[in-house]
């Protein structure tokens, strides 16, 4: 597999082999526009998937086949358009040169899945439907799925932001004030490590509604890592930064808000990432057992009806949803921590 993200552009062999005068070579380059052969991988993979599906379509739901062909048609059409446009559009060429092999491989993986499920029937139905029927469920049930995603997003955002807000405040207090550290640390050490999902029965009794219980569970799951990492970041602020600030005439609020918190930012972001991971888990579990909406609920509901196509459809949405949220947090991190030298890439 050629998955290296380098830019190899095919140049006319003339330019590479001989070394003509600069003017001539410039003219030739202008004539033969740069072109990435990797743009062809996607149309080829689409064609392979389409031919395969055509061969196997007789045994499948004709509606699903129609949807799958439409999907392949859109992907194939777009990829041909990209292959034609890329000589004239540098950003597009870079993108397709980078993403072409990956997307083609994903399409081929779909074909392999189709051979295994619809072709050879190697896996038992109804647990392993073919890609076409998963796509069909995704399209035909899109309104419910959209509604569920929206509810999950609301719940996640509310719970996460609440947890982060409380976590940063408690973390700063525990990290800065010795008194807060003395009383807060034991609570943090005892309550923090309890898996939040174990508190679900309790939260359902205590909270006035299932939504509030789900939000507070997500918030609690986020609160612990954010508090822990914020507190350690604040208390590990380099003493010399604080000394310098003091000799510059800094007040205590300057020391906390302009020195300790910025210095702790890399740590705080580690807490935010850890909290985001546990918030996904808590969200799905809370939706499954408590709130009767959201993607977690949808998975359980579809499984109850043995509609595994819907289960996979929801998993696809979850993957896209959670990785988008993760990307947003990484972008925010890159914005806030521009001053850091090397940072982990997402």
């Amino acid at each position: 597999m050629n998955a290296l993200p380098e830019i190899n552009e095919i140049r006319p062999p003339l330019v590479a082999a001989e070394a003509p005068s600069p003017a001539a070579s410039a003219a030739q380059r202008a004539h033969a526009r740069p072109w990435s052969w990797k743009a062809l991988l996607i149309p080829v993979a689409t064609a392979v998937a389409a031919v395969l599906h055509w061969q196997l379509s007789k045994q499948q739901n004709p509606l699903a086949t129609k949807v799958y062909f439409q999907f392949l048609g859109i992907v194939g059409g777009a990829s041909v358009l990209i292959a034609l446009l890329q000589p004239f559009w540098n950003a597009l060429r870079k993108w397709v040169n980078n993403m072409g092999p990956i997307i083609a491989a994903a399409l081929l993986l779909l074909s392999v899945a189709e051979i295994i499920t619809a072709g050879l029937h190697l896996l038992p139905l109804p647990y392993f439907p073919s890609p076409a029927s998963v796509l069909f469920e995704l399209i035909s049930d899109y309104d419910v799925l959209f509604d569920c995603t929206w509810h999950s997003l609301l719940l996640l955002t509310e719970g996460y932001l609440l947890g982060v807000l409380i976590g940063v405040v408690t973390g700063v207090c525990i990290g800065w004030f010795p008194g807060a550290r003395y009383w807060g640390m034991p609570i943090l050490k005892v309550v923090g490590p309890i898996p939040v999902t174990a508190l679900i029965p309790l939260s359902m009794v205590v909270a006035p509604s299932t939504t509030i219980s789900a939000i507070s569970l997500v918030a609690l799951a986020v609160w612990f890592p954010v508090t822990m990492l914020t507190a350690s970041g604040i208390s590990n602020t380099r003493a010399s930064y604080l000394d310098v600030a003091r000799t510059l005439g800094a007040s205590r609020s300057y020391l906390i808000f302009r020195v300790a918190i910025p210095a702790a930012m890399p740590n705080i972001f580690i807490g935010l990432f850890m909290g985001l991971g546990t918030s996904f888990l808590t969200l799905v579990v809370a939706e499954t057992v408590g709130v009767k909406s959201g993607l977690g609920w949808y998975v359980g509901w579809a499984q109850g009806w043995a509609e595994y196509g819907k289960v996979y459809a929801a998993l696809i949405i979850m993957a896209a949803f959670f990785s988008t949220v993760m990307t947003v947090l990484f972008k925010a991190r890159d914005r806030v921590l521009v001053w850091q030298k090397g940072a982990i890439k997402w």
């Binding site: 380099r238 010399s240 930064y241 000394d243 310098v244 600030a245 000799t247 510059l248 005439g249 800094a250 007040s251 300057y254 302009r258 020195v259 910025p262 210095a263 930012m265 001053w339 850091q340």
Partner: peptide, 24 residues
């Protein structure tokens, strides 16, 4: 006070570092 290590605040640009005494 100036130390052997400049101890500039790494999260601030040079300009904001120099300003920081005025801000404080």
């Amino acid at each position: 006070l100036v130390f052997q290590d400049p101890n500039l605040f790494p999260w601030l640009t040079v300009r904001r570092n120099i300003e920081s005494g005025l801000v404080a």
